[in-house]
Simulated assay, not measured.
Amino acid sequence: MTYTGDVRVGGPADVRELSALTISKLAVGPYDNNAYLVRCNETGDGVLIDAAADADRLLALIGDQPISKIVTTHRHHDHWQALERVAGVTGAAVVAHPLDAPELPVPVDQEVEHGDGVTVGVVSLEVIHLRGHTPGSIALHHPGHLFTGDSLFPGGVGNTEKDPKRFEQLFTDVSERIFNRLPDDTWVYPGHGKDTTLGAERPSLPEWRARGW
């Protein structure tokens, strides 16, 4: 079946097969968060992006194959409610940016900065630091595929709580670190809701800047 990224809480994961990776997207409650399981096709190693909630469903998605890491894209509680349990059951290392790490419910095993890599088997996911939604928000990039947490959605950047300085920082980072260097066919996997592509969003950048959110 063709991957669409359209998932609902309580429904099945949507699975995408790439040459090097398999991506499974699952919606979890109560805040309709997206969690992503990324597996290396060569080794079977896995990385879970945002253990947001519904630990039992996330553990069922992971199944019997190991995962080596759980990446938390940012500090907001709706993105880590299942982190302690999933990390405890799987033994996976907890990964986050150092500016958001102190807010997580468990110690962070690997702190990552802009430009670092998060390995999943023989593949390395590039860490992109996107400041503004939270100080330590990160995205993960594999060529053609971008996991953006709550920093980029269809229709705009993440919530900066009407703070003009935070909005300007996030808009600048998203513009310079994502749109200025990645191609239009890059698929965007956000922390909530439907997926998009950079090409679909690029024409709206001037509108986003003008409206300030």
Results as ranks from 00 to 15, higher is better:
Met1His: 06
Met1Tyr: 08
Gly5Pro: 14
Val7Tyr: 04
Val9His: 04
Ala13Phe: 09
Ala13Ser: 06
Val15Cys: 06
Arg16Lys: 14
Leu18Pro: 04
Ala20Met: 05
Leu21Gly: 03
Thr22Met: 11
Lys25Met: 09
Val28Ser: 00
Gly29Met: 09
Tyr31Asp: 13
Asp32His: 08
Asp32Asn: 15
Tyr36Ser: 02
Leu37Gln: 04
Leu37Thr: 05
Val38Cys: 06
Arg39Val: 04
Arg39Phe: 06
Thr43Asp: 08
Thr43His: 09
Gly44Pro: 00
Leu48Glu: 04
Ala55Asp: 14
Arg57His: 08
Leu58Thr: 05
Leu58Tyr: 08
Leu58Glu: 00
Ala60Asp: 15
Leu61Phe: 08
Asp64Trp: 15
Gln65Asp: 15
Ser68Tyr: 10
Lys69Ala: 04
Ile70Arg: 00
Val71Ala: 00
Trp80Glu: 02
Glu84Tyr: 08
Val89Trp: 09
Ala93Gln: 06
Val94Thr: 04
Val95Asp: 05
Val95His: 04
Ala96Met: 10
Pro98Met: 11
Pro98Leu: 15
Leu99Gly: 07
Pro102Leu: 00
Pro105Gly: 01
Val106Ser: 05
Asp116Trp: 11
Gly117Arg: 11
Val120Glu: 00
Val123Pro: 11
Ile128Pro: 00
Ile128His: 03
Ile128Lys: 01
His129Ser: 07
Leu130Ile: 06
Arg131His: 08
Gly132Lys: 01
Ser137Tyr: 04
Ile138Cys: 03
Pro143Arg: 15
His145Glu: 10
Leu146Val: 07
Leu146Ala: 07
Phe147Ser: 12
Asp150Val: 04
Leu152His: 02
Leu152Pro: 07
Pro154Leu: 07
Gly155Lys: 13
Val157Ile: 12
Val157Ala: 03
Gly158Cys: 09
Asn159Val: 08
Lys162Asp: 15
Pro164His: 15
Phe167Glu: 03
Glu168Phe: 10
Leu170Lys: 01
Asp173Phe: 03
Glu176Pro: 11
Glu176Gly: 15
Arg177Lys: 15
Arg177Tyr: 13
Ile178Asn: 03
Ile178Val: 14
Phe179Val: 10
Arg181Met: 15
Asp184Ser: 13
Asp184Leu: 11
Asp185Asn: 07
Asp185Ile: 10
Asp185Glu: 07
Trp187Asp: 06
Val188Cys: 03
Val188Tyr: 01
Pro190Thr: 02
Gly199Ser: 02
Arg202Glu: 09
Pro203Trp: 03
Ser204Pro: 14
Pro206Ala: 08
Pro206Phe: 11
Trp208Glu: 05
Gly212Val: 08
